[in-house]
């Protein structure tokens, strides 16, 4: 049986892993290669890098990071942040990424999803959707970390990018992100049930049961978390052991 995936997410700025503290201060959290290798050893099924480099001058640094990680970590790598065109996608894939995630650029230009999938294949294209609840059973897509409304319905947008050729959806609840109250399971399930491509649940993980809930109640195909792993609260292996104990198929 196909295993549900656990994906640690690393924020990378100017070539270093950073951790947000109280949403403002960014603290250095190490070398991306070392952190990625540690997660690989713990049994992570994939690793996602989110490039949050502020300066456009430093954009190429992520390519070197990906190159170095891909030389030593032999599990799938997804990279997102600042992807604007098909050439950005190609550069990241050529550096060693297996999948590239796009968010704002897809909202601004949905054709980019189709163009990129047509060039490199759907399996390489992840569309990240940041959603906020606006009414019972209704979620709107936001960009720029939840600051900008798009007017797009999250479920309809997920269906649209899937039809354009996205291979996977990275779905983040902006209501839950950073709260440690667990995934927005209603959102996760609504999107997962509406599309035939895999959904990665993200945003709000505060304990290991939240990860399992994302799969059992949210019907996510994979679960993504950052802080629960970064701050040493739990290892990926512990998360998998708990999921297995709750009857979820995992790679252990």
């Amino acid at each position: 049986m196909l295993a549900k995936r656990i994906i640690p997410c690393l924020d990378v700025s100017a070539g270093r892993v950073v951790k947000g503290v109280n949403f403002v201060e960014l603290r250095d959290a190490g070398d991306p290669v070392e952190v990625a290798r540690r997660y690989d050893e713990q049994g992570a099924d994939e690793i996602t890098f989110l490039d949050i480099t502020a300066s456009s001058d430093d954009r190429n640094i992520i390519l070197h990071v990906v190159e170095q990680v891909a030389e030593q970590v032999f599990i799938p790598l997804t990279v997102g942040g600042g992807v604007r065109c098909v050439d950005d996608v190609r550069r990241l894939l050529n550096a060693g990424a297996d999948k590239v995630s796009m968010n704002t650029a897809a909202v601004n230009n949905p054709q980019l999803v189709a163009d990129a999938a047509g060039k490199v294949g759907s399996q390489c294209i992840v569309v990240a959707i940041d959603a906020k609840q606006v009414a019972p059973g209704k979620w709107e897509v936001f960009t720029h970390g939840g600051r900008n409304r798009t007017g797009l319905d999250a479920i309809e947008w997920a269906q649209k990018v899937a039809s354009l050729g996205a291979g996977e959806i990275l779905l983040t609840s902006m209501d839950r992100d950073g709260t440690k109250n667990g995934f927005d399971l209603g959102l996760t399930r609504a999107v997962s049930d509406a599309i035939s491509i895999p959904v990665i649940a993200s945003g709000g993980v505060g304990n290991l049961d939240h990860l399992a809930d994302g799969v059992t109640l949210g019907r996510a195909d994979a679960v993504l978390a950052a802080s629960i792993f970064h701050f040493g609260e739990h290892t990926v292996r512990e998360a998998k052991e708990l999921m297995r104990a709750r009857g979820i198929e995992v790679r252990l």
Binding site: M1, K4, R5, S122, Q123, D193, I197, P198, D221
Partner: peptide, 22 residues
């Protein structure tokens, strides 16, 4: 085949088949 993409728990199996399998 779309009509066979149903898991043991009745949930829909997604395509692409993506992830770690036996």
């Amino acid at each position: 085949p779309a009509d066979k993409m149903v898991g043991a728990d009745g949930a829909r199996l997604k395509v692409p088949h993506m992830g770690w399998n036996e």
